[in-house]
Design a protein around this nucleic acid. Structure first.
Lengths: 292, 292
DNA sequence: AATAAAATGAACTGTATGTTCCATTTTCGC
DNA sequence: GCGAAAATGGAACATACAGTTCATTTTATT
């Protein structure tokens, strides 16, 4: 049955993704120490890429020889060949914008000055996404979506710089069939509209320093009327953070005095689609069911 | 005068950026072969990070010993210490989103399903920025900004999904002291407002498939009245591309049917600030002067 | 043009590294 | 519970590597 060293024609992985899949696939059947190395490898791919067999073995808590055995178990002829895959991964990783902007061979003038401006905004956006990806708390997100899920109408509060996000949320919610009401600064009807909101509704309030007074005031009123407030803001000292039931701290990078909206947008879309998803599959009401 | 090996107290670079600056700084004064290595190093940092002294020397077309001399010229005590800097660079490079989404230890369940949705939007945004960074043409950008620079009033045309971008442009232009007029779908006044536009003005029209008929129609009318149109759209087949004086092709990645706006936003900000910059320093009218 | 100084090429060397080997322990089948 | 097979630890081994050295060439100085 077992055709060990014979017909290993299953082309052994040359790229990291395939290797990772292979390891996860065989995880169950690996010997204890080998599995220990496998786990370490997937958790510390950079270490494998850069370290020496001895140093890796030490920090993984095994003997160097186990590393070779691990590689051979997977079909590689030694640790070195396996290490190549981990190095390739770093090679192929796309360059970050910050780097692309500075790591140009010539002293400075790469592209026109206009290009440099756009690059600056691209870099700011990229950085913001990065920070968001690291800092976003799963539980906060779940609580926010849970609250929005139960709301009859979702009110959206934002002015000035935050307004584009609000308008996008309103548009997306509309497309997804979720009832929402955008509070615009233009219309003087804000007080009337707000007075309709009840505890069965919910509010998404978006505001960054310097906080638009209208947004803050309206959020305060709504909160006082027991309408749950989800706030997207930039610090714990934000007035919105005080009376929000759930609040997100979003740190947007800026360029030339204009802060990015990329991370806020992504979060907004996540909230929107998250709510819609939950409403669609009403059966699994609270617990977020894992779909495909 | 020259205090060579004596007082090298100028802390030698431990991070790549500083090293790069150091190399560029001394570029002129380096011996031929050393300079050859320096150029190769900045062009192929990944090779330096992973290769052996011998392999690098071969592909750089020098002797291995030259690599050591290069390192020592910069103040490092050997090739290995220099190589550490190149390796650190790869280590610190933030993981891309696509990777972060797939390279998770467990089979699938990293974070909640809501988290996965937000991650999806973050990844889409990141990808969009990446594509934009690669495809944006400097000349197109310069021409667009040049046209907008000469405009008395900038009209902004966008509906539905593109509307948030338009509202952000309007906000930013306002803050920067550039006269602009946002054409909203809500107000039935569009035709009247549009009729005021002349060839001394300009239009930014934003529309993606399926193109909002109002945007297309209004852009057509304006173009017919000799108002120059800058279009931001998604393909050469877009109706906007036909009568636009300058048009940008923006490929936004999507997640769950909702396309990102990150790249469009960055471009929009670039246009906005680019125009404002140009207007501020009116002296250097056409050629983009290098400031600071 | 002659001399000194710097730079370069190429072989050599000590060391650090991956790998192999074998004794010991653990796991599994009967 | 016994025996076989697999897995593991640890030391010995071979080699591939960075770094050194020295002869040669190139560049600068007088």
């Amino acid at each position: 049955m077992d055709d060990m060293a014979d017909t290993i024609s299953e082309a052994l992985p040359r790229d990291f993704e395939a290797l990772r899949a292979l390891i996860l696939d065989r995880r169950e059947s690996l010997p204890k120490r080998i599995a220990q190395v496998a786990a370490y490898a997937l958790d510390n791919p950079d270490e494998i890429a850069f370290g020496t067999a001895a140093s890796i073995a030490t920090s993984a808590g095994v003997q160097p020889s186990t590393l070779i055995r691990f590689a051979q178990h997977l079909g590689y002829d030694g640790f070195t060949s396996l290490q190549q895959v981990f190095r390739e991964r770093l090679r192929e990783r796309t360059t970050s914008y910050e780097e692309r902007l500075t790591v140009v061979r010539g002293d400075a003038d790469e592209g026109t000055s206009n290009r440099r401006i756009v690059d600056g905004f691209l870099a700011a956006a990229s950085k913001s996404l990065d920070v968001m990806s690291r800092n976003l708390d799963d539980e906060t997100l779940d609580r926010a979506i849970d609250i929005l899920h139960g709301a009859e109408t979702i009110y959206i509060l934002a002015r000035r710089r935050s307004y584009p996000v609000a308008s996008y949320i309103a548009y997306a919610l509309g497309k997804l069939g979720v009832r929402s009401q955008l509070i615009e600064s233009a219309s003087g009807l804000s007080p009337e509209i707000i007075s309709f909101a009840s505890s069965r509704d919910a509010v998404i309030a978006i505001s960054f320093s310097p906080y638009a007074s209208a947004t803050v005031e309206e959020a305060r009123v709504l909160s006082a009327n027991n309408v749950p407030v989800i706030a997207i803001t930039d610090s714990a000292f934000s007035p919105l953070a005080q009376f929000a039931k759930v609040w997100f701290e979003v740190a947007e990078a800026d360029f030339g005095g204009f802060r990015s909206l990329a991370a806020t947008m992504a979060l907004a879309m996540g909230l929107t689609v998250g709510v819609a998803e939950l409403r669609r599959g009403r059966k699994g009401k609270k617990s977020a069911s894992s779909k495909g």
